[in-house]
Design a protein around this nucleic acid. Structure first.
Length: 496
RNA sequence: GGCCCCAUGGUCAAGUGGUUAAGACACCGCCCUUUCACGGCGGUAACAGGGGUUCGAAUCCCCUUGGGGUCACCA
């Protein structure tokens, strides 16, 4: 509820000209949190007045992005609602009507200046050291002059007749009151010659028509907000409360762009980032939940989120922390979820059959569980379990120097392979007992047997407990890999 | 350039006139351990600079510097 008890209505209004950017996702999330905690309504409106750049594919991608993130909307292009339609391209009549009204009231006027004329004016103003604003050539055209030029077939743009004196103040929930001198207000265009409203106009008309109570959006709009305030007033609408959330920056403090890596939520999804992790990270970027708690579900976030506690400064995006958060979430996933996540890749690589029997499936589950806690995401996990499905294709270089270079390593590996015949059953405990007593017998430290064995059968130096790996892999595979490694050592001895 | 916003460690970020200036990620060390990861313990590291106000400023004011945004017939 707002102070006067009108129900909260917020909106996120993306323009479908690309993918869902993480900055936009965060802004939407903040809107969503604010709506959900106040029992309000979250509206998704599509700002597609730029007919040249808007695409349906982009719109669908944005919707998919939100669904994936777990952000739902109460009114929008697909679900409808009492104030639809929710695509600006379908609301032309509403804008036209609003334009006509302001025209009748003398709050808007047609402007016939050519692009060339405007460019020249701008240049002249700049040379004279003045701000490059519209020279207001057409502000005071007489009705006769207008009629004449219309009759001549000229199509005008329409400009807002901005106040020339005084000041306009923007009440911002995050920044407090921001005062702008009206001298800074340009006679901005509200209607383009292609018959479409501009962003400023459509946005305000819609916010008014949709009874939006709080406009929560990116900081880049703050400078434009006085225009919106005067527009709302001209429209006779109640001016909503504003909240301008800081921007998200790249590590070099510049605007986040492709060259800095992933910028869209789909890219993160493709990289194995979990939606819960991403949405959690987005919350942390600009808001401190308090009580040293940083891992929060959407539900917890709804409880603690406070619009007026959002930070005022831009935040640099830190992939490392996102990955850490992702690992937290990834490790807590249930075996079945993990299995379904990696299954397609396992199939693609030919690691598994299409219809495994129960025993095989159970075995795969165990394999995955053993490595899940040492993996940060699904792709990582698939890499880490590859040696369960095929022989190692190479031996880790540093590992080779450390564990294969010794005098009798090849001999020991071969002996080990032979002795594995006697281990019965081929399980974790008997395997460990065998290795320990062998180490004592040969008078070497257990590590001298364990590390070369691991490298021989997995190709790497890291992973779960060796005896777990061996038991999972089975006797035959262990023996053949051990012998294979011994041979490899002999043929490569000169280079070790 | 005009206008607007912002400024605490490498990053996120507590702090709102009196604190040994939290915590998290990252980094480093130690412990645990057959390795790695996890976990535990510890460490390096910050109030951009200069003026005020005040008994006392990270906290309030001014200036400078720096970063960002905006000045479109894009949104």
């Amino acid at each position: 509820m707002t102070e006067d008890h009108t129900p909260v209505r917020v909106r996120f209004a993306p323009s479908p000209t690309g993918s869902l950017h993480i900055g936009g996702a965060r802004t939407a999330y903040f809107n969503w949190l604010f709506a959900r905690q106040s029992g309000g309504t979250f509206v998704l409106r599509i700002d597609d007045t730029d007919t040249a750049r808007s695409t349906e594919a982009s719109l669908q991608e944005i919707l998919r992005g939100f669904r994936w993130l777990g952000i739902d909307w109460d009114e929008g292009p697909d679900v409808g609602g009492p104030f639809g339609p929710y695509r600006q391209s379908e609301r032309s009549a509403i804008y036209r009507e609003a334009l006509q009204r302001l025209l009748n009231e003398g709050k808007v006027y047609p402007c016939f200046c050519s692009q060339e004329q405007l460019a020249a004016d701008r240049e002249a103003a700049q040379r004279a050291g003045r701000a490059p604003r519209y020279a207001r050539r057409c502000r005071d055209l007489t009705p006769e002059q207008v009629a004449e030029r219309m009759a001549a077939g000229e199509t005008p743009v329409y400009r807002f007749k901005s106040p020339i004196e005084g000041e306009t103040v923007v009440h911002d929930r995050i920044r407090g009151d921001v005062v702008f001198s009206n001298e800074e207000l340009d006679d901005f265009v509200v209607w383009k010659p292609d018959g479409m409203p501009t962003y400023h106009f459509a946005s305000c008309v819609d916010d008014a028509a949709m009874h939006i109570t709080h406009v929560i959006r990116a900081e880049e709009h703050l400078s434009n907000t006085p225009k919106h305030v005067v527009l709302f007033e001209a429209l006779g609408a109640k001016v909503p409360e504003f909240a301008h959330v800081p921007m998200i920056l790249a590590p070099d403090r510049s605007k986040l762009s492709k060259r800095h890596g992933a910028t869209s939520v789909q890219e993160y999804r493709d990289q194995g980032i979990l939606p819960d992790a991403l949405i959690n990270y987005l919350l942390l970027l600009g808001f401190a939940p308090g009580e040293d708690k940083e891992i929060l579900s959407r539900e917890e976030a709804i409880q603690v989120f406070r619009l007026d506690k959002v930070t005022r400064h831009a935040a640099v995006y830190d992939v490392k922390k996102l990955e850490w958060l992702n690992a937290q979430y990834f490790r807590s996933l249930s075996p079945d979820v993990v299995l379904s996540m990696v299954w397609p890749t396992l199939r693609e690589r030919g690691y598994v059959e299409a219809d495994p029997d129960h025993r095989t499936l159970a075995w795969i589950r165990t394999v995955l569980a053993a490595t899940q806690e040492r993996s940060r995401n699904a792709a990582d996990l698939v890499e880490n379990v590859s040696y369960y499905f095929r022989d190692p294709v190479a031996y880790d270089e540093k590992g080779v120097r450390k564990h294969f270079a010794g005098e009798d390593v090849d001999v020991r590996l071969e002996r080990l392979a032979d002795i594995l015949d006697q281990v019965e059953p081929f399980g974790v405990v008997p395997l460990e007992q065998t290795y320990r007593s062998l180490a004592a017998e040969w008078q070497v430290k257990a590590g001298m047997l364990i590390h070369p064995t691991r490298l021989a059968i997995t190709g790497v130096t890291v992973g779960p407990g060796l005896f777990d790996v061996m038991a999972l892999l089975g006797r035959a595979a262990c023996q053949s890999r051990l012998r294979r490694a011994a041979n490899w050592i002999r043929t490569n001895r000169s280079e070790l």
